[in-house]
Write a protein that binds this DNA or RNA. Structure first.
Lengths: 340, 340
DNA sequence: ATACTATTCTTTACCGCTACAGTCAATTCA
DNA sequence: TGAATTGACTGTAGCGGTAAAGAATAGTAT
């Protein structure tokens, strides 16, 4: 390894003190013109790059944000991360990316790791509640900012949040299906997180509002993965009077549900209409384009970054804010759509 | 901010030296049973977490890998990152994620930032060659490992690589179209990177091998984005004797090409067969499922992580390795597929 | 009893950088 | 002319940790 260029070296070669070099690099006022120029010349000559680790140690801030998301494979969180990256990068912050694999223990481990690495803040899409609330509560007192995105568990944790109005999302989707003239509208639940429950609540609310009946067995347990939707749909298809529409908790699961429908020889949307949620990339290029309730992930990421950077900035707001990204219906073929 | 628990504090409360605490935490042999137990008890009591920044400063390694990819939106690189994360996380390494937005200047800036942050190694999918070769060459002498993935520019840079056999990918795709009985097979080029050029070479090689003629104007400039494929296909569709098949440089562009075809009232694959490359997620769920040449991104990421961790490990290999992830044809409807 | 060797700690130095409190000469002020 | 001010720099300490070498106590060999 070549000799690393440090401020010490620059100072030595120039016969000035390390402090002087530091001041030049930090644009302090009390350095003479000539000296400043000499230092800058040397910095350029040696290709000096400051050591961020050392700086972090003294300043007690790393200019790094931790990101803990449950899943890297489906595009949803990744698109949020893209939004985060835009803002963070522009403000000189780095992103330390971790995946919890929807596993509370791994989530805890990752957060601990981020804590050890002294990140200034954490953007978290937390897995199912319970276990880690204590840890999250403690983050604030450790001087680590927290913004929770997309998921609304851990109500006891005081932090900023960027959420969607899931109740409205569920209502939009279901109302749309009712409007399409569907009579037997089922719902494939997501995992047991508040988020998914609210979409289910929206489903129920819409049915009630329009006086549409639904059998209890039309609400089936599913999940957020393609396989979950597939399995759940299989169960729905086994019911005697067949359902003619399904609001699925999210898009990957909705895609799984469509697969199950096709496998049993039925058509989407003629036999069963499908509406998902999340508006994942390529959703409009599917074999049957998927009607969905979507909201801007990019915006969600950007808002999260802004809230977090604000909080860890010099004068943080004294109250915690919740930004709601409004959902909107994106009508495509799978629900009968414009053509039906 | 609460008092941070440091080794100093533990040492003070226990009346031992900081070094003793350090040794206990690092499992050194020269600490007595009783003392070790007392220290560990205090560590648990205070919930001590080591400060990774301080440790990094002394040890001169951060246990962090930088990842610079051109694009976070399309799934390809993200899936590679998922593979990376699996291995890195398991070995206690963190991932600092940056996007270059296909922009050489931003790439350079991000690499510089990673350097300042003292990452142990960098996983890079570099944008179009030229500018940053010098920087990349220097990384090694700065003690920063480098593994280039997916892209094969910068031939002068000595580092490990994880690539696909693009020539073979192009040949597989084109040979398949020939096998489907297509006569007028066009190619939509990717951006001017070696990677894409090789796929074009494979296209030409396959045609030559099978004695199939192609007009020069059947090779049109495109890119790796959906819009590129769309635009290029529009041009192809304007040609008088219409082409009946297109090998598109990658999947997003192929999807764009299909859109252009549909817009002009033609069918895929009946009128024009399409083969893409990359096997992006959801490719099998498109309106017309996309035939493509794919390779495991997860494996690509994992291999990259292994190569890099190996190189920055205690006894790095003395030669640089190139791992080739073999491509394979994934036949779906868009090429006429099994049904034709 | 004396010297030698472990065993178990402690002391000191340093990683690269910044904050804070000087120092020292050249002005400015009264 | 002497004191106070200003401008341009330097010295020291410390961020939290680890490595290397030294010291104190106990145990063993001679």
């Amino acid at each position: 390894m070549a000799v690393t260029t440090t401020m010490k070296r620059i100072a030595a070669e120039l016969g000035v003190s390390i402090t002087t070099v530091s001041k030049v690099l930090n644009n302090r006022e009390d350095i003479g013109h000539a000296t400043r120029a000499r230092v800058l010349a040397k910095v350029a000559e040696l290709g000096y790059q400051p050591n961020a680790v050392a700086r972090s140690l003294t300043l007690r801030r790393t200019r790094t944000l931790g990101v803990v998301i449950p899943d890297l494979m489906y595009s949803f969180f990744v698109e949020v991360v893209a939004g985060l990256e835009t803002i963070a990068s522009a403000r000189g912050y780095g992103l330390l990316l971790c995946s919890s694999n929807e596993n509370a223990a791994k989530e805890r481990a990752e957060i601990d790791l981020l804590r050890q690495r002294q990140v200034d803040g954490i953007v978290l899409a937390s897995v199912n509640a319970s276990g880690n609330t204590d840890l999250l509560k403690r983050l604030g007192s450790l001087g680590i900012g927290l913004v929770m995105i997309d998921r609304d568990d851990h109500p006891a944790v005081k932090c900023d949040r960027v959420l969607t109005d899931d109740l409205k999302a569920g209502r939009l989707a279901t109302t749309h299906l009712i409007g399409q003239g569907r009579k037997a509208i089922a719902h494939i639940l997501g995992p047991p997180i508040t988020h998914a429950k609210r979409r289910a609540d929206g489903y129920r609310a819409a049915l009630k509002e329009h006086g549409v009946r639904a059998r209890p067995e039309w609400i089936v347990r599913g999940g957020f993965m393609e396989a979950d939707g597939y399995g759940a749909m299989k169960k729905l298809l086994a019911l005697k009077p067949r359902v003619d529409a399904v609001f699925v908790a999210n898009d990957p699961a909705a895609i799984g549900a469509m697969k199950a429908i096709w496998e049993s020889g039925l058509r989407v949307p003629e036999d069963v209409a499908i509406v998902g949620a999340g508006d994942i990339a390529l959703g409009d290029l599917l074999r049957v384009p998927l009607t969905t309730v979507g909201w801007s992930r990019d915006e969600q990421g950007k808002q999260a970054a802004r809230l977090l950077l604000d909080r860890i900035g010099p004068e943080p707001s004294d109250s915690f804010r919740t930004v709601v990204i409004p959902p909107q219906l994106i009508i495509r073929r799978s629900s009968g759509g414009p053509a039906a």
